[in-house]
Amino acid sequence: MNFKPIPNKFEYLNWQEIECVAKNKRSTVIWPFGAVEQHGPHLPLATDSIFVDEIISEVFKLFSADIPLKKLPTQYIGFSPEHKGFAGTISLSSNLITSMIKEVGSQLSEMGFKRLILINGHGGQISLLNTAARELRSVAPGMAVFPCFLWSGVNGLSELLTKTEIEDGLHASLAETSLMLALKPELVGDDRPNEGNKVEIPKGWSLEGNAPTAWLTDDFSKSGVIGDSRGANESLGKNLKELLINHWSELIMNLMQSDWPNNS
């Protein structure tokens, strides 16, 4: 039986194919990051990982097979200490994740790859990946590194989600429950918690924002949910999915059509 590899999966190619791709002046690797952490009683532990893996896989379907863009296997286990009060959460240390990104990124740079996109689906490790990306650049200055958050900068979210959901629906709430209903409905339970979104915070401070606190989920939520998931539905999820795919396909294609940064 002849086996035809999936052209954009890094690990399915042979070393000669990788060597050829890396030589391209626009060679780019996408490395998705997620988490294995509690997402309430109704969503799977791998919610963030599933989201980023599914969206990027859909984005690849819009590109031609010969584009010099490859995807590393999604890093499912991430940095999730805020959820360690709940069974099922597995969290790696910040030092381990930073070291892993530096080691893998340095090797990609040595192969000749020009750009690395760290596309992250877990809000709790945004700052960590930003820091790791800067450290990677210091040891592999010839490769551009882009630490991105799946939900950041996506136009149209405010038309689909209320201000309350955008600001306070921090975890396993309306948006995440709806998106999972659109992607993998068989993994969604029947519960629709509404919890953890009415926290008394000193004036001017917030859970996340300009003056945040390093919160832990079990500070104010017994279910693990922060927000209101009661209105979740598949239709909203499909619209969110479309926004995410359109946003990232446009951004990635803009990058792939450019020579930035031109280090030659």
Rank of each mutant, 00 (worst) to 15 (best):
L150A: 02
D259L: 08
N246H: 13
W151E: 07
L157C: 05
S80R: 06
L179Q: 11
L255W: 08
P202G: 01
I56Q: 00
D66F: 05
G227S: 08
L207K: 07
L72D: 01
S127F: 09
T164M: 09
G34R: 12
L243A: 14
G78M: 11
L150N: 00
E165R: 04
N233G: 00
T131K: 12
N263L: 15
L108T: 01
P44V: 12
V29M: 00
N2C: 05
H171R: 03
W260C: 11
K238R: 13
L255H: 07
D218P: 11
A132V: 10
K238T: 10
H83P: 08
E195I: 14
F220D: 10
D228S: 01
I252E: 04
N2Y: 09
E110D: 14
S223H: 14
D66I: 05
L181S: 07
F3V: 14
G78D: 05
K61V: 10
L207Q: 02
D190P: 03
E242F: 03
K71W: 04
E58L: 08
E54H: 13
N120F: 05
E37R: 14
V225S: 13
L45T: 02
S223Y: 13
N263D: 13
K71I: 07
V225P: 10
A65R: 12
K198G: 07
S221V: 01
N263M: 15
E37G: 11
N210H: 10
K102L: 12
P81K: 09
G78K: 00
L161D: 01
K9Q: 12
D228V: 00
T131Y: 11
S64K: 09
L13Y: 02
T89I: 06
L179D: 04
T213V: 15
D48P: 03
L236P: 01
A132D: 04
R192I: 02
V188H: 00
L251F: 12
S80V: 02
G105P: 04
I97R: 09
K23G: 09
G196P: 02
G105R: 09
T217P: 01
N210C: 09
G156N: 05
A182G: 07
A211H: 14
G196H: 04
D53M: 09
L62H: 08
G156F: 04
G123S: 11
K222Q: 15
G189Y: 06
N95C: 04
R26E: 09
N246G: 06
M253Y: 15
A175V: 00
A232Q: 05
W248K: 03
A87H: 07
K222E: 13
R137T: 11
G40N: 04
F60L: 13
A133L: 07
A87E: 13
S91W: 02
L108Y: 00
G231S: 10
G88Y: 08
P73W: 02
K102V: 09
K23S: 12
Q38A: 13
G189K: 03
